[in-house]
Design a protein around this nucleic acid. Structure first.
Lengths: 197, 197
DNA sequence: GCGGTAGTAGACAGATCTGTCTACCTGGTG
DNA sequence: CACCAGGTAGACAGATCTGTCTACTACCGC
């Protein structure tokens, strides 16, 4: 089995260096799958939006399902990078949670959690969607746990806050404004962080 | 404009007395839309499952969208009836929340919240879906608030618990088992109900 | 210069989806 | 009896969806 590329800096993972066309397709998927939903976004629209032909599309992704998984993988990396950065920017403790989420929930193109939405749409059909969603939420939980001070309750607080964050995300998705979701999140943070005497 | 039916007991709402065919269509929608998703369920499959012909289907529902809204309306009524009953069966206070949710999340055909899933699938496309989801969650919030003892924190606790419940529902949807979701819900209930000294 | 890789351009197949239409049947009501 | 709402049966239209295929082009490393 020959090496795929020798020009690459011999990375351990040996990724085949993404082409421009592939990047455009993924960028379109990032936007359209999230905004309009996965089933609602046809391959034809993705192709048109990416300024790519059908043959090119199917050269990079054997089928739409492969693009869906690549989309989720990409979205996970991008979202985690933003999340950890925003938490750090806002202080890196539990008080950072509300302003961080506020950034996202108030953004005009917020449409809920891409992973929760994907599981709802095709969780039973594409098992990979459920698998990556679990990984995503596990990593989100780790990032949340990192905000907590060491204590006997730390693991429990982390689990509670992770669930609360998901609840706030879905609430902001169907409410007219994210204010109630953020207020509820704020309250939960207070309740969780002030242990009973 | 003549009365639709005189045999009906002159109900104030004047519902046109649902026919057997309509009931079968709605029953199929209840099962298939929830289990497989709305977009994934074609009109043809609904028709086959309901033992009804296409003409009959379109006589009762001008389009698929009307059936979707009727489905959500029906699901809302059924779910609220179950929810309030289960809460009462388990004591009617905040300790009833975990065993009630456990009934649902542990049931083999649990697939998450039909309203959250629907908003994720076609929230932008069918505004009625968002509208009925808000009503549904508002009523759920009222049922949760009814569990709480009168206190200064009541409204805040109700909001917090409503968000936590939604978080537990979505977590149980992608986790392999609902145990973590229920444990987190339990923890949140404790945190919320034990106000800081 | 040769060959392989990645790309363009677009026709095409086959399935599926929503929705319409015609023709016929049946049971209840005026 | 006549009428008609509600039902059966199924063909059909038109759009859309995923995926395949042919033919041609441009570049890059050997």
């Amino acid at each position: 089995m020959p090496a795929r590329r020798m020009t690459a800096p011999a990375a351990a993972t040996a990724e085949p260096a993404p082409s421009e066309a592939r990047k455009r397709i993924l960028a379109s998927a990032l936007a359209l799958f999230y905004r309009d939903g996965i089933r609602a976004t046809g391959v034809d629209r993705l192709i048109a939006e990416s300024a790519v032909t059908k043959a090119t599309f199917y050269r990079h992704f054997p089928g739409k399902n492969d693009l869906i998984l690549a989309f989720l993988e990409h979205r996970h990396a991008r979202w985690m990078a933003w999340f950890t950065d925003a938490l750090a920017r806002h202080g890196g403790d539990t008080d950072a949670l509300v302003p961080t989420l506020a950034e996202w929930l108030r953004s005009p193109d917020f449409r809920g959690c891409a992973f929760i939405n994907s599981v709802g749409e095709l969780g039973a059909e594409l098992p990979g969607v459920v698998a990556i969603t679990r990984r995503h939420k596990a990593e989100m939980g780790v990032a949340i746990a990192a905000l907590l001070p060491a204590s006997r309750l730390r693991r429990k607080q982390a689990l509670a806050l992770a669930i609360v964050v998901d609840g706030a995300i879905v609430r902001a998705q169907f409410d007219a404004a994210p204010d109630a979701a953020l207020a509820g999140l704020q309250l939960c943070c207070q309740f969780v962080m002030k242990p009973p005497a």
